[in-house]
Design a protein around this nucleic acid. Structure first.
Length: 507
RNA sequence: GAUUCCGUAGCUCAGCUGGUAGAGCAUUACACUUUUAAUGUAAGGGUCCUGGGUUCGAGCCCCAGCGGGAUCACCA
């Protein structure tokens, strides 16, 4: 058992005292609420008659005790509001216990209370609740870190320790209101996307997270074991192959907000579990998907900010349509100064050497091109830019280009120097798909541990015939990071992955 | 996984050349019936991340470990 701090002992003593007074510090019955902090602040001045008998609940965030009267702030899900508690109002008779004991000695910052009374404006002009009565709804036993804010909104002693904030997100959310805003924005972003898809009549679906073959992307999976079937299962690294099976099945537009899992490094932009939106639409190609994607993202910016311009660190990014489009070959020509058209593996290897890019001898042609692009081009695309027409080898699920040999009909959307979306004219030729899988197997044997496994059931599905389809995937965490100007993925995930705390030594 | 910085009161932080642990907020007590980073007076609160080592003496120096951040590698 952990040692209790002085303040925690004091709070437990208060709790026992409250119980001795015959008050349940954790009452079961509901507390009727008829307004909230934001509603009062926004509408009281205009409609004072409506605020004669308000009732609301929240957490005590500060006390200003003036003796026989006192002020406090309570915080609900919409913000904070000041309450004014006058001893002789809440204790009209001779018995002042409620105020002198329960209110002044029993309550702490962090406690959750319900209050009722009328709204008024103080001498200093702050809209407040003149309390007629209050009820303790939940006693807080752990002292909440205190963050103070002055009249200009300047904060003092803000809790900034990332370990505290990520491990105890519940406390972070209570004391840092801007953290809450980020997550509200995240949900609004997802709602915006969902509205776009539903308005088109596309169907939101759910596909397996536990997969016998971790397909649809190139990444190291988490492995688990099913006891009853006595077989290994993988947490999905992507859901692409399942959504395409549904297109084969006759749905013409499907999408899923998918939690994917990859057993790889963690950093500012990578968490082992993350969210990807994938969407597949039949009878479309990647040009259509580019139009759809830029409209979709422009709408997200407008829904969140009311403007297409979004400030991300030092850059203002404008999501107004249309986005720039450039082929990968032209991008490399522009930023690396090399025309790679028609080059073979050894030519590319020489280009890498000349550009000072170190490459693994195991890499094939496609990966070499990807290295050049990643090293020399990617960071230049700050404003939204579609990079189109990728080498075939690094895109085994993508249809061959209609006119450019060796390339595929693929685009990625770059924003703020990083990849945000990935989309194809989907490969629906089952014989070509089988060949591409086999090439992946060859790469795997050559030592590329991210090459894809062959999924024979997916090939069987393609053999029934999949309509020409375009599909797109977008990293929701990264889109949220951009749209909310957060530098770390940990700031857009409620509970980012951390090592367990307090592991005993020697076990 | 590598490199590097960091870990002191509930929170934010200071701590000199190695010599008995400091501040503000929070907490406790008292005062105060319109305050707002409320105020005034007084008090209490510490496994200096953990374990070793050097030293007469370690929050500080050395070694190892744990946790976190940043950069790199892998990746989205």
């Amino acid at each position: 058992m952990e040692q209790l701090s002085e303040q925690e002992i004091v709070r437990r003593e208060k709790l026992n005292e409250i119980i001795r007074w015959g008050i349940n510090p954790y009452p079961a019955e509901l507390f009727e609420v008829n307004t909230n902090a934001a509603d009062i602040k926004q509408n009281y001045e205009r409609d004072k008659l409506n605020y004669k008998t308000v009732s609301l609940a929240g957490r005590i965030m500060s006390f200003r005790d003036m003796g026989k009267a006192s002020f406090a702030e309570i915080q609900d899900s919409t913000g904070r509001i000041q309450i004014y508690v006058k001893r002789d109002e809440i204790c009209p008779g001779d018995d002042k216990t409620l105020y002198d004991k329960l209110y002044k000695k029993g309550l702490d910052i962090g406690d959750i209370i319900g209050v009722w009374g009328h709204v008024f404006t103080t001498k200093v002009g702050e809209i407040s609740i003149h309390v007629a009565g209050f009820k303790l709804l939940a006693k807080s036993l752990k002292p909440l870190p205190i963050v103070k804010t002055d009249a200009e909104g300047k904060t003092f002693d803000a809790v900034s320790d990332p370990e505290f904030r990520y491990r105890q997100r519940y406390a972070d959310l209570i004391i840092n209101p801007q953290v809450r805003d980020v997550f509200v924005q995240r949900t609004r972003l997802i709602n915006s996307l969902r509205n776009t898809f539903n308005n088109q009549g596309y169907l939101e679906v759910e596909t397996p997270i536990l997969q016998p073959i971790p397909g649809g992307a190139a990444a190291r999976p988490f492995i688990t074991h099913h006891n009853a079937l006595d077989m290994p299962l993988y947490l999905r690294i992507a859901n692409e192959l399942y959504l395409k099976r549904l297109i084969v099945g006759g749905f013409e537009g499907v999408y899923e907000f998918a939690r994917d899992f990859r057993n790889e490094g963690m950093d500012r932009t990578h968490n082992p579990e993350f969210t990807v939106l994938e969407i597949y639409v039949a009878y479309k190609d990647y040009f259509w998907m580019m139009d759809f994607t830029e409209a979709m993202i422009e709408k997200v910016a407008l829904d969140l900010h009311g403007t297409t311009k979004v400030q991300v660190a030092d850059n203002t990014i404008d999501f107004q349509r249309p986005f720039q489009r450039i082929t990968m070959t032209d991008a490399i020509k522009k930023y690396a100064g090399v025309d790679i058209t028609g080059m073979d593996e050894s030519d590319l290897r020489k280009v890498c050497k000349d550009l000072g890019i170190e490459v693994d001898p195991k890499l094939g042609k496609g990966k070499l091109i990807d290295e050049i692009f990643g090293e020399k081009c990617e960071h230049n695309f700050v404003q939204p830019t579609f990079i189109i027409d990728y080498p075939e080898e690094m895109s085994p699920l993508c249809k061959k280009h209609r006119s450019k040999p060796g390339l595929v009909e693929r685009f990625e959307l770059m924003v703020n120097g990083k990849e945000l979306c990935n989309a194809y004219s989907e490969l629906n030729d089952p014989i070509d798909q089988k060949k591409r899988f086999e090439e992946q197997m060859a790469l795997m044997e050559r030592g590329d541990n991210e090459a894809m496994f062959i999924d024979f059931d997916f090939l069987r599905a393609l053999e029934y015939g999949m309509p020409p389809t375009s599909g797109m995937g977008i990293g929701i965490d990264r889109l949220t990071m951009i749209m909310t100007n957060q530098p770390s993925i940990q700031d857009v995930l409620f509970f980012p992955q951390l090592r367990p705390e307090n592991v005993p030594v020697g076990e």
